[in-house]
Amino acid sequence: MTESTGGLEHRVRGVDHVAFPTFDPAATVRFYRDVLGFPVVHSICAAGWGPEHHPDFIHFFFDIGNDDRIAFFYYFGTENPTRGDKGDAYAKFAADVPEYFVRSRHLAIHVENEEDLLEYRRRLDASDWPVEMQIQHETIESIYTHDPNGYFFEITRAMRPVTPQEDLDATLTIDALLDVLDRPEPTFGKLLARKAELIVDRAAGWQPAEPAGTAGWETVVR
């Protein structure tokens, strides 16, 4: 993996916690603990302190599997300071901000298989926060809803393992992207042209770390 990591040893071990504000902690506990069944694993009750007139707060954590955690801040006596027509408890936007942008920042939690994905779909559909979409993307299948704070929430499963050639492809994509960003007016077309050059230069000599298990291309090539 030297090429994909730039030669640096990869020492990190996943998400410790990701944290969000909540102005509806009761619904937040219902959603994560009582609907989804994510255990409460940690909490901090802290008196306000510091130079900024920080409010008293509760910082509480739910286990999202793999010992990773999602955490929330509830600030006593505080109204949401954000303003806007749409968005979530952390960020609001004017009505004309496109939905693809508003939804771009989201948390996706991994499950092992389709059975587990559908189990969480059942739990959500029986709650006040039913699944809004179930989509098969390129290689993953996901369910989506918004949590009580308006945070866009995804649970996803891999439909197959990632193949070694997809790691190569990701490396070439990023190298091509950095190249076109160094030039005037980057476009998707320029990225595909640069990536074609990198494929010709680098893909022929590529060897998978393990058998690629691809789908019989010999029958296609002629």
Partner: peptide
Amino acid sequence: YVLDIPENTAVATIAAEDPTVVVDKIGPY
């Protein structure tokens, strides 16, 4: 250029049905 992964195989297969088209491999593409 199309990456050779199971989802994309049909793109190469269908393209190859046109007699004016040639499909080769460069590494996993």
